[in-house]
Design a protein around this nucleic acid. Sequence first.
DNA 1: TGACTAATTTGGAACGTTCCAATTAAGTGG
DNA 2: CCACTTAATTGGAACGTTCCAAATTAGTCA
Lengths: 345, 345
Amino acid sequence: MNRIRTSIVDIARAAGVSKSTVSLVLQGSPLVNDKTREKVNALINDLGYVYNRGAANLRQATSKIVGIVVNDLTNSFFAELAVGMDLVVQSAGYVQFLAHSGESIDRQRQVIASMRENGIAGLILSPARGTEANDIKPLTDSGVPVVVVVRNMPGAKVSTLLSDNCAGARAAVRHLVSLGHRRIAFMGGFLDTAVFAERVRGYREALIEASIPLDDNFIIHSAPSRAGGVAVVERMMVFPERPTAALCFNDAVAFGVCDGLRANGVEPGKGFGVIGFDDVIEAKTAVPALTTVSVDPQGMGQRAAQLLLKQINSGQIDQETIVTPVRLVVRQSCGAPVKQPEEIA
Amino acid sequence: MNRIRTSIVDIARAAGVSKSTVSLVLQGSPLVNDKTREKVNALINDLGYVYNRGAANLRQATSKIVGIVVNDLTNSFFAELAVGMDLVVQSAGYVQFLAHSGESIDRQRQVIASMRENGIAGLILSPARGTEANDIKPLTDSGVPVVVVVRNMPGAKVSTLLSDNCAGARAAVRHLVSLGHRRIAFMGGFLDTAVFAERVRGYREALIEASIPLDDNFIIHSAPSRAGGVAVVERMMVFPERPTAALCFNDAVAFGVCDGLRANGVEPGKGFGVIGFDDVIEAKTAVPALTTVSVDPQGMGQRAAQLLLKQINSGQIDQETIVTPVRLVVRQSCGAPVKQPEEIA
DNA sequence: TGACTAATTTGGAACGTTCCAATTAAGTGG
DNA sequence: CCACTTAATTGGAACGTTCCAAATTAGTCA
């Protein structure tokens, strides 16, 4: 309708005060008289004024925008992570540029550059595979706080939020051992990621602890997706001596493994123990309910956002690394004899 | 590091030209001499200059930012929708505010207001349940183009992108009928949404067409989630005369229904035919592979973004409504005797 | 060389806000 | 009624860009 937008001076004129006064009203200053405040507010409503945050940013050189870049939004782990961040960012009165890098480093770099031009106050990054400290150096060098989640980035001036992958994997494998399994595989995931390495490390440690000989054939990698899980089972089926249980790289792979087993006439949780990693929402309601290492992606997203906002507000960027604990949630897919009472849906 | 950011006048001074010239270089004007352009570009690099898009927006009153609000990012249908939008928005040189409303109208209103203050050039909205035309009226009134997707919003000055829910449901039920099913249920979904109504309409039409009497008990609603699907099956199990097949509100419900059936000793695709709606990524690899109505969320997201950008660039906001066709993808879960060759993973 | 056209370059105003120093208005105690 | 403190209000500069009209420089032709 009205192509020309109304500004602070328009309402100043209408109210018969100066633009400075209107500005004070806008930022809720106690300096201004209640009566004038009231008049100004009324006019703001009447004239349909909308605050121009861009102009404000220009003046005070500090925006209320944060950037969030996630490597794969279609993976529900990361989607929930993003939702957690959204929650706290939003309620702190910030808005977010939220972008999906699709594991492409070029895309990621491009998107971060664009966010920088638009003046973000901070960045949360769940980096694409193969991201290096250099990729965000310009940003960190210019004093913008950055929080890296899920995957770590050695050498970068950032804070980091990780989950205790090694301990989680160890706990999972220990549990399988306690159920009597001896031939335990590690299934799915990309070889070249730090997360993969850590989870495999936990897997190995638990096996050694139980004096079970390691067999590298039992570490079968694949894409960290449901399709990847199906593929892994196909490969496993031709083994002369098959494993009897598996810790999977993540829940998506675990679901795929269940699918694959069923396609081969094996019932997950009965003939074969399956444990996932992440505890995405569907894990609880799937059949069989998935035993998994709970990472609480949404909570992790919230913590990451809180950490970033803290640094933005305090103005000091420190480099803390927080490793959040994880816990094994025993459900049915591992063939456990008893359910934990809290986990009955 | 350097707390004071370098601006256009800094490089102008360094290059011995005026800020106007630098501005021209920045926007790739052909007016400027190649030699000066080169010098300026070199300095831009050296001094680590970053373009301040906020200042530019202030001057030209038109930004390169679009807003995207999605009702539920944790649902993979919507996540893929968002990824499709992200793709075209990004490559058109725009950035997006992408927010998750979590089906909360308050949240949605708040987030849209915030985006408005930040100066978006357009908005794509996948509305929260119960959104009304009034909720976005201030935005549309001020001449910002809005594209509504998935759910429609009667009375709003917006363009709309819908999928042909009715036809899809009709095709699905016809298929079940052709397989010999007579007692066919409609499972899941919230009663009060337009999408639900349309899909149920298609379901009814197909039954009438086949002279199968309607039975309202066979329309069993629930939350449109995996958990909702499980719950629906529980309720169905006590029916004196159970259905032999079901069209589900969406794929999430369909997966839940499969889980529920299995928990009750019924094998989906054998003892009971299941058809989903949406064709999310997992539908193909699940076991049994899910027969579903393919909506192509990512493509839909792309089209929505293209439509919005078209309106932004042309400066004219028309109110087109596009209904995109859908197609039934026959896989295993409906108990079809033959597979379509293209669908073998 | 002079006159004219084409190619470059350039001040300054403008965009909508915040901030500062300064001004004016309103009380208050003697 | 004065001096003084406190409460409210206010111009104008500043932020980093774009745009316009105008100025400068270079090139061309007679």
